[in-house]
Nucleic acid binder design. Structure first.
Lengths: 191, 191
DNA sequence: GATACCATGTAAGTCGTTACATGATTAT
DNA sequence: ATAATCATGTAACGACTTACATGGTATC
């Protein structure tokens, strides 16, 4: 039985045959909105799934580049994936460092806490912009091709989730900034 | 140097001296909205931090219960925590199984996918309700005591984040349901 | 000349989970 | 009786990260 990462790989390979490198590119942080993993985890997982018959590869030689192992899903892989999808997902703890930092934010000065949060806003605003660009591109394609539920529905759904997460995070960061300002204003007028 | 979990523990112990068991209770899934961890990870981490002088404990004997080790933060611990808060947080990949399942949702029937998503809505609606109750309680307390930025600001901030995450997740789930219905409706009228 | 991309892997180490271990008390 | 709560720990295993390893091609 594959791990969660294994199923994530299966899902990608099922949508389109591709190499470990291709998968790694899509799972690359910080832009990977589907599942994040490094190549050092992906290659062994692919090898394991190939041995257990869920995927198969054909080696494609190239002139100037090293050979690619292009993986595709076997029938057994498709069955395993469909069965796994239906049963309830494992809940993953958020365990986000920023929440711990926010919890103890009063331990550093308002100036420093504002700087911390503003940097988060900057970075996540940037990421959100990229995600929204991608979403807009997909929405155009969907309108053009009519409302046929293409194989890209899943990709779009994952994107929507990532965008929602970023928007929520940014709203929370902005609330934090307003709270920091409120406290700073209070302590200033007191003197 | 402590791990992220170590700092999460430091933050909790800094807000109020407490035992490993108390910490484990707050970090328990599925309600732990601050940081999730099991006691098997917390006890060794506390022991390590005690050895490196960031926390100290006093053993409190009890009549009917086993003795408690009540930990508190040392000055070195407070310094370490404040320094850690200021530097940029590590970004954690979401790696949520449900996103992978959504990606391949078209591989199972609309009935089964709707069941999967509806169960998520049920569970997370319940969790959201509990979080909102807690938030309401804190908001009352804050209004009563005036707007003094109590030590509970951090707790409230963590809660707001958790609530935001749940709301976003539920909105996404409901969008998924509407998409599933749209597709099902289309295929029905076709026949 | 340096950096980034293509393309694949392995090794060592850390973080986290599940299970093992103990034992009294309280609630259903 | 059975389960849940209080209270602390250790051991084995699995997941994930960082670094090691190789080597050609394209871009600045």
């Amino acid at each position: 039985m594959p791990t969660s990462l294994g199923y994530a790989i299966l899902a990608l390979v099922a949508s389109k045959p591709q190499s470990g490198y291709d998968i790694a590119r899509q799972m690359k942080s910080p832009l990977g909105y589907f599942w994040q993993a490094k190549h050092s985890q992906i290659y062994p997982e692919l090898a394991r799934m190939q041995k257990s018959g869920l995927v198969a590869f054909t080696e494609v030689e190239q002139k100037t580049r090293p050979a690619r192992k292009v993986y595709s899903v076997t029938d057994a892989g498709k069955t395993a994936l469909a069965e796994w999808i239906a049963d309830p997902p494992q809940e993953r703890p958020a365990n986000d460092e920023i929440v711990v930092k926010a919890y103890s934010l009063a331990r550093i000065s308002p100036a420093r806490s504002a700087a911390l949060v503003r940097e988060q806003i900057r970075a996540h605003d940037e990421r959100l912009g990229l995600l929204e660009q991608r979403a807009a591109a997909i929405e155009d394609r969907r309108q053009a091709r009519g409302t046929k539920t293409g194989s890209r529905f899943g990709d779009y759904a994952a994107l929507r989730h990532a965008i929602g997460v970023e928007r929520e995070y940014l709203a929370w960061c902005r609330w934090l900034i307003s709270e920091i300002n409120r406290v700073e204003g209070k302590s200033r007028t007191k003197r």
